[in-house]
């Protein structure tokens, strides 16, 4: 058995003059929940379409379950469940009928298909809506039906394209829990794409950041922040009591000056009442001392861990600066 269940090698897709996916390399081991992150138009969906053989790459290869998706898409689609972005169902058919249809397209006998569809509807919490027309489903219900639709063929790999798009926060939480639970129970490999960072952060074992068709960073959240924030691994947020009088304002300026001269401090930024300090080493004590010495009131001090949001913003800062 291959080590990697999804493997992209130098995958490239060009539309006219626009390069959607640019020499993308990706390797996902079996059983992992992998998050593909990136802004809209970064090439996430295009990469996914190529994994399923729904579009052809210009160059490079895609292997899913050890099968080439470009030359043998049918075999790949037997093993991969795909939930497209904004999934649609036959609106005149009930949720159950929609699932049974998918099952039968996967050569599952009708009786078994119905049993399986019912049990999946129960697991995604749509048991009571099984006989309702899919056209009457709400967005969140459609997405859950989509998940059942993906699972009905008992896939080895689940690929979800923006599964949380357009669902309210509670629904998102439920859906993500469902994805994690189902995938852990059955040992599926999950690849999901999103531009919602914190959601993905919660459930993914690893994430890959894809921008302009290139994979720019990969790993779990901690290693990502190490990659991107190599120069300033630590960040402090200090809430200041902003003075009102003129001579007090100069105090703050003095403080910033002092902080900049401190050893190990890389960056000082004042945003409203909040002072952002990036340091290469832990010298919180000295910073606090400096603030108090300069006579500025301190309301809180926060040692920040980098989340995906920061990682994301940081990356885009770099992209914009380099332009």
């Amino acid at each position: 058995m291959d080590r990697y269940i999804i493997e992209l090698i130098d995958l490239t897709k060009v539309y006219g003059t626009f390069t959607a996916v640019d020499k993308l390399n990706l390797a996902i081991p079996r059983g992992e929940i992998y998050g593909l992150l990136g802004p809209n138009g970064a090439g996430k969906s295009t990469a996914i379409l190529m994994m399923l053989g729904l579009t052809e790459p210009i160059s490079g290869t895609v292997n899913v379950c050890g099968i080439n998706s470009t030359t043998n898409p049918i075999e790949v689609r037997r093993k991969v469940g795909y939930l497209p972005e904004d999934v649609g169902f036959y609106e005149d058919y009930t949720g159950l009928e929609n699932l049974v249809y998918t099952a039968r397209l996967n050569s599952i006998p009708p009786v078994e298909a119905e049993e399986k569809a019912m049990s999946l509807l129960e697991r995604v919490g749509l048991k009571d809506e099984a006989g309702k027309k899919a056209g009457k489903y709400s967005r969140g219900m459609r997405q859950r039906l989509g998940l059942a639709d993906v699972l009905i063929k008992s896939p080895e790999v689940i690929i979800l394209d923006e599964p949380t798009l357009g669902i309210d926060p509670k629904g998102v939480q439920e859906l993500l829990d469902l994805i994690v639970r189902l995938s852990k129970e059955e040992g599926h490999t999950v690849l999901l794409s999103s531009h919602h960072l914190h959601q993905v952060q919660e459930i993914c074992d690893r994430v890959g950041l894809i921008v302009n068709g290139k994979l720019i960073a990969e790993g779990n959240i901690a290693s990502l922040s190490q990659q991107l924030f190599a120069d300033e691994p630590l960040s402090l947020e200090a809430g200041l009591k902003m003075p009102t009088q003129n001579n007090d304002v100069s105090r703050v300026e003095n403080l910033i000056e002092t902080l900049r001269n401190l050893e190990g401090v890389m960056k000082v930024n004042l945003q409203g009442n909040e002072l952002h300090i990036g340091c290469s080493q832990d010298n919180t004590e000295k910073i606090v001392e400096a603030i108090i010495k300069n006579g500025v009131g301190l309301s809180y001090l926060n040692k920040k861990e980098y989340g995906l949001n920061e990682i994301y913003n940081r990356y885009f800062e770099e992209v914009n600066n380099s332009r």
Binding site: L54, R78, V80, K153
Partner: peptide, 14 residues
């Protein structure tokens, strides 16, 4: 338009 095409073609269907 209904979004069912990509779902059907993601099944093992030529």
């Amino acid at each position: 338009i209904k979004g069912t095409l990509s779902r059907v073609l993601a099944q093992p269907v030529h």
